[in-house]
Design a protein around this nucleic acid. Structure first.
Lengths: 275, 275
DNA sequence: TTATCATATTTGTTATGATAAATATTGACT
DNA sequence: AGTCAATATTTATCATAACAAATATGATAA
């Protein structure tokens, strides 16, 4: 049924798979029609008929679109495929796959973080709502008590990163925000943080772990004050110092990072992190 | 066969689909066994048997992994699924899907580009090989002749972005490099560049288009000299000026950007762009 | 030796039909 | 009016069978 490919030439000239062609057609259909999230696509049976493909092929195509986050499919009456806006979680997970084989180091991530996070914070200073300021304060409060066990220690490290996620939520530049959120997510999944959870970090270098926490707390308190004062310049300075300091501690604790695929589900979040 | 979900609660508690569970199992299998790109997975039939799923479900699972870029599947003897390192192109395309619904503006992208690209260039200055310097020069040469038609004009704009891609190739920080490459790719697909191809930009604002090209050429020439001199500080300064200037011209030409999905295949590249 | 062809293997696609699970709707009952 | 249960709809999965297409390998011929 499918047209034969030219072999002989070294270049792989094989036709794309049928399901992939259907995927591309549906994608351009979504783009051309300007469909919005929530808009429904025809149901499976109609799609099969429309593209002249079998059930299996159609299901593969829908699966592809689902993995890409472009559609959701649901069962039941009024069910079927509907356009979805690609979720943040999904995008971050797919992107994390890329870096799985790249052996990123903390230094490399922080080289970018040092550049972006101060700018994000300065931008957020302008737009933070009272609710978000309160959320920041909650994160700080959670970190202000000495941890009673490893699990609490771990939750405090994650809450620290939630602090930064809140800033991203307040930032109006979605592109900048995404980049910062993604780095937070990388750090939440990095080996240093996991070692804190397993207790390995405390055993290896308890003083360093304490200092990481103490310095982080101090920096976040100072930042919170600057946010309340709506002082972008000061925020920028404080954040840069904070990041540089955090990098020093983290690098000291562990140089290699991202040794696992990112979890499908979002990492456990403290109560302070509002979406 | 599948366990019933608790309905009643508002939260969707439905079990993940069978194919998705298989996907997760294979992913952790890859991670746990430390499989490397090229390593082969069992073939379809064995996998079906191993996970106790039907052909359709197994194919959906493999499709998912294929879309994520984690495996390649091939037909024929010795065929089947093998681990793949997620390709740059694939990651960028998946990430671009996320921004499709976000209505990014050139300003937002350039706010990040202004921060990262000078750092990338400074880092590249240290590592650029002779071959890469020559490639940079080729890109500059291509842009140094006045364009004879719209197609050439368009190719020149793309070659300008190839210049930046080459810098990313030379940079040892894969994380920084990816971010810069992705922005280049966003810009290659943005409406301003496409309007140049369609001739719309020239009709609307021919002087601005000419100035964009002339300023870009001048900046790249200066940068090339600084690269040859291995002068990171000067490179950083020049690049910042270049980006700020480019942003001014681009924003003037068009405020809204990224109105289409990114192409499946890499954008047409000039000869100067070596991978 | 090199080029070409035949073959076996494995995925890709089609086809069909049946059962299970999720869910919106409807209607009965309180 | 509101709660609950039956129902209908639609996807999710399973099972099976057959043919098409791609490709590595080995055999054959120039």
């Amino acid at each position: 049924m499918r047209k034969a490919a030219l072999h002989k030439t070294g270049v792989p000239t094989s036709l794309p798979k049928r399901s992939d062609m259907v995927v591309e057609q549906i994608k351009s259909w979504i783009a051309d029609e300007g469909l919005n999230p929530g808009d429904r696509l025809p149901q499976e049976k109609e799609l099969m008929h429309h593209f002249g493909v079998s059930k299996g092929t159609m299901r593969e195509a829908l699966k592809s679109l689902e993995v890409q986050g472009l559609i959701r499919v649901s069962t039941g009456p009024k069910g079927g495929a509907s356009v979805a806006s690609v979720s943040l979680q999904r995008s971050m997970q797919l992107l994390a796959n890329y870096f799985y084989f790249q052996d990123l180091t903390l230094r490399q991530i922080y080289a970018v973080r040092r550049l972006l996070e101060p700018e994000l914070a300065a931008a957020a200073a302008e737009y933070l709502t009272e609710a978000e300021l309160d959320a920041l304060e909650k994160s700080v409060t959670l970190c202000s008590h000495p941890p009673t066990d490893r699990d609490m220690e771990h939750r405090q490290r994650l809450a620290e990163l939630d602090f930064h996620d809140i800033l991203a939520n307040a930032c109006r530049n979605e592109y900048l925000a995404f980049n910062c959120r993604f780095m937070n997510s990388l750090l939440k999944n990095c080996t240093v943080i996991k070692k804190i959870y397993s207790g390995e970090a405390q055993r290896a270098s308890p003083a360093r772990v304490r200092k990481l926490a103490a310095d982080g707390l101090r920096a976040h308190l100072a930042l919170l004050a600057a946010f309340r004062a709506r002082d972008p310049a000061r925020v920028r300075t404080l954040m840069l110092e904070h990041i540089v300091e955090a990098e020093r501690h983290m690098v000291a604790l562990e140089a290699v990072v991202v040794a696992r695929f990112m979890d499908e589900r979002p990492a456990r979040r403290s109560a302070a992190a509002a979406e």
